[in-house]
């Protein structure tokens, strides 16, 4: 039973590099000035996520949407346990699998097959346990003989196939994806979508960030609209998409 529960969750980044003068500049000229603040030590803080309270349950396929700098990636990283919330709490049930960066844990000089093992290691899967999945992963990627070539010879789309297949070979309970599916061709995307739907039907959940409403409509059943680290709308995808498009039209 996978679920994610956020309770008044806030994530703030202190900016250490800025000095006094550029602090001032940052404060007055920041394009997204609403989420800049100062902490007790007078350091500049970027509030990336502000008091989020929401629950994502099993079977939910949540599409994260919002303009650049709205906190989508930060939210994914927080859900993945990479950033621990500055305040508030995150309760996670289920094993998290985060596909945030295609290149993560990949070694360009190693072959595709070796990289499947490497990826598995980074996900905490012992090489012995990973071994049984390798053939299935190879098959899913449809890379053919390229699987034994160094990964640096791969195109972005091939890399994506490898990363996606390797990351999802052990059924994820909570799958977090940043918007990098765009590199895949339609054949692969259809295949990946099928795989995801199977997972989500079997008691897991997914959060996917993307700018493409079209993609989200295909993949997701719920929407979460973030702006400046605040939840603007959360609910069935169609309704959230409507709010999003309306606010785009207004600005």
């Amino acid at each position: 039973m996978a679920s994610l529960h956020l309770q008044d969750l806030t994530v703030e980044f202190p900016i250490y590099q800025a000095n006094g003068r550029s602090l001032k500049k940052a404060l007055f000229s920041a394009p997204m000035g609403t989420n800049l603040a100062r902490d007790a030590a007078n350091r500049i803080l970027v509030r990336a996520l502000s008091h989020l309270t929401l629950t994502i349950d099993k079977g939910d396929r949540v599409g994260l949407i919002g303009p650049n700098g709205s906190g989508k990636t930060t939210l994914l990283k927080t859900l993945a346990g990479i950033y621990e919330p500055t305040s508030g709490a995150l309760h996670t049930q289920g094993r998290v699998s985060a596909l945030l960066d295609v290149q993560m844990g990949m070694n360009p000089d190693a072959t595709g097959r070796e990289n499947i093992m490497l990826r598995g290691m980074y996900m905490g899967i012992h090489p012995k346990d990973m071994q049984v999945h390798v053939e299935e992963v190879v098959e899913f990627t449809e890379l053919g003989p390229y699987i034994d070539m160094p990964v640096r010879t791969y195109s972005a789309g091939m890399m994506l196939r490898l990363a996606f297949a390797a990351s999802t070979c052990v059924e994820p309970e909570i799958l977090l994806m940043d918007e990098w599916l765009a590199a895949g061709d339609s054949h692969f995307l259809a295949k990946a979508q099928k795989r995801m739907e199977d997972f989500v039907q079997r008691s897991s959940l997914m959060v996917l960030a993307s700018h493409s409403l079209e993609l989200l409509e295909k993949w997701c059943n719920k929407g979460l609209y973030l702006r400046n680290g605040n939840v603007i709308a959360y609910g069935p995808l169609a309704e959230v998409a409507a709010v999003y498009q309306q606010s785009l039209a207004e600005t």
Binding site: H5, L6, Q7, T53, L54, T55, A89, H91, N230, V231, I232, A233, Y234, G235, P236, E239, V240, V243
Partner: peptide, 23 residues
Amino acid sequence: MTVAGKPLSAQAGPVQTNRPATP
């Protein structure tokens, strides 16, 4: 659906007390 301004906690449901406290 919740839109900003309306209480989001209603969406989250009552906070369960049996959640493990943050260690």
